[in-house]
Nucleic acid binder design. Sequence first.
DNA 1: GTGCATCTTTGAATCGTTTCATTGTTACGA
DNA 2: TCGTAACAATGAAACGATTCAAAGATGCAC
Lengths: 340, 340
Amino acid sequence: MNRTASIKDVANHASVAVGTVSNVLNYPDRVSERTKERVLRAIDELGFVRNDAARQLRAGHSRTIGLIVLDVGNPFFTSVVRAAEDAAALQGSAVLLGDSGHDAGREANYIDLFQEQRVQGLLISPVGDVTERLDLLRERGVPTVLVDRLADEEKFSSVAVDDDAGGYLAARHLLDTGRRRLAFVGGSTSIRQVADRLQGARRAVKEEPDATLEVLVSEGMTVLAGRSVGNTLVERNREDLPDGIFCANDLLALGIMQSLTMTHTLRIPEDIALIGYDDIDFAVSAVVPLSSIRQPTEALGRTAIELLAEEVEAQHPRHRAVIFTPELVVRQSTGTPSAN
Amino acid sequence: MNRTASIKDVANHASVAVGTVSNVLNYPDRVSERTKERVLRAIDELGFVRNDAARQLRAGHSRTIGLIVLDVGNPFFTSVVRAAEDAAALQGSAVLLGDSGHDAGREANYIDLFQEQRVQGLLISPVGDVTERLDLLRERGVPTVLVDRLADEEKFSSVAVDDDAGGYLAARHLLDTGRRRLAFVGGSTSIRQVADRLQGARRAVKEEPDATLEVLVSEGMTVLAGRSVGNTLVERNREDLPDGIFCANDLLALGIMQSLTMTHTLRIPEDIALIGYDDIDFAVSAVVPLSSIRQPTEALGRTAIELLAEEVEAQHPRHRAVIFTPELVVRQSTGTPSAN
DNA sequence: GTGCATCTTTGAATCGTTTCATTGTTACGA
DNA sequence: TCGTAACAATGAAACGATTCAAAGATGCAC
């Protein structure tokens, strides 16, 4: 197996200098048509492919951006990744994707790997408290943008979604469609997202003097957890039931929907309206299509890349925190009771 | 911002030769304790990080493996990726992940990018018919292993799952639990996976003289497609109904489950048993936990890396095709009728 | 034909690491 | 004290692309 051709081989094969081959690749205008043609033919015949290592060694930096997410399987991140890749491609960079899987060790490995690769910068959705590790990156001069996490604006730029606003949107929607006895279902409020969404819901409920908000804590944020909450609800007396439920994510909502529709004593949305959070694929194809709060993941990914570009270009980086507002998606599960 | 320190800076700072620093990093045994200590201190003080570009320029190849999947959001691939990353880490390589999103253009971009990066090899789950592009890779001497797709064994190694066996498993299980009037639900049989699973099911049904298999073609392979198939079923006369349904994926099965449980005229599994394919997360938390066929994704990812290592090491690569057999996961949706 | 401006092409130097032949050092037995 | 083996440290060369000052070619006006 012959090793891959280098620019020198191409130069020999086309009987020109190496500098000329380089010019054909990087500054085609500087080269005459005749030579350009000859060089391109040589490149083709030898199957030459640029060696990026040599290129970036000379350049001092790569054309890649590192992106570390908590879980590529999570549709939220999948969508962010797509958008980031597309935005990076527009500015001629490629994205190296790392999946930490919520594991600090894996995350550390990727940070090291990307640093050795001399990525232009790093987008990261960090595992827990990584301030220490990230500070190190900052010292080393690796431009970094935090994704889906707010940061000390002195130190980092960041993009995030306003969960408080999302919670407000959801609760406000339930109130607007006439519900007054609301319930919030979520896992532990020690999860920042859950706490914020609840806080936003509280804010909305306070706007209506006759509205109440009950908080139900679930065991985790899964379909099964939702179903077990739902099962406790169906056992209640009719008059003790909420008439609108806001779940901290769609899985919980789907679980509750399962238990309510299975028993057939309570109808959605006539007796109880239900709204989730995240707008996962399954929301639209649930037995009763689920209303939800959609996060602007495309904007997140795109903006993260843009902020990173700012960091790279600026000499004295002014960090910025960009916060997006999520969007209400109305489906049948919160249809106005009167409308049915 | 001062540029990152090089091995030379470290050498100066520690008053040793560059070769010594390199030895500390790569062959610690060759260096005396005293010097090693001094060098490590210098590395720490200067915040030195290896420049991988220079390293791989010298070495002629990188320590990374390219992995291009059709859709990182698909749990099947997510799991394959995890396993591949872990297996690669064991042999000291890192995985560069690319998501083609079923788009040939994105796929091509990643192939080019990875080639320029001089990856050790490529694992790819190709979009459609990419034989041309892959042949080019082969000519260029980039070791390549196809994932989830069989390949001409003359040309490539590959790992895949035996869909025929999976179909057989599913149908055999329905037969073993006493069903005789089976139905297969799937999208177009022009999709290879669907055709193979159906073929396997047919094979099983032929083993029972009194068993029949009806084929229902759905519009796509989504929950909604499944629900619409389910709706046509509930309108049938009881005696025309199948007593066991095998769906080409879990989404279809969940859709059918929705329509059957909504109308409450047919019970799962008493009246109709239901089994899906893929064992997605939602299968276990369905209203009636869904039996399914699980694909050995971890083994796929691990083996793909191992086959690639074989290709890299062997001078005259003997290609191998490794085919895994999927696994039956029994849940309530196919509980034996007598048992209930 | 000469001078000058413009356009092409050249090739040595450079990036940061690893390699390896060479030189320097140490320890120990004769 | 000398010779020698074992161990440490050295530093120039090499990897392949880009850069850029300099040389060469071409065209045009006079």
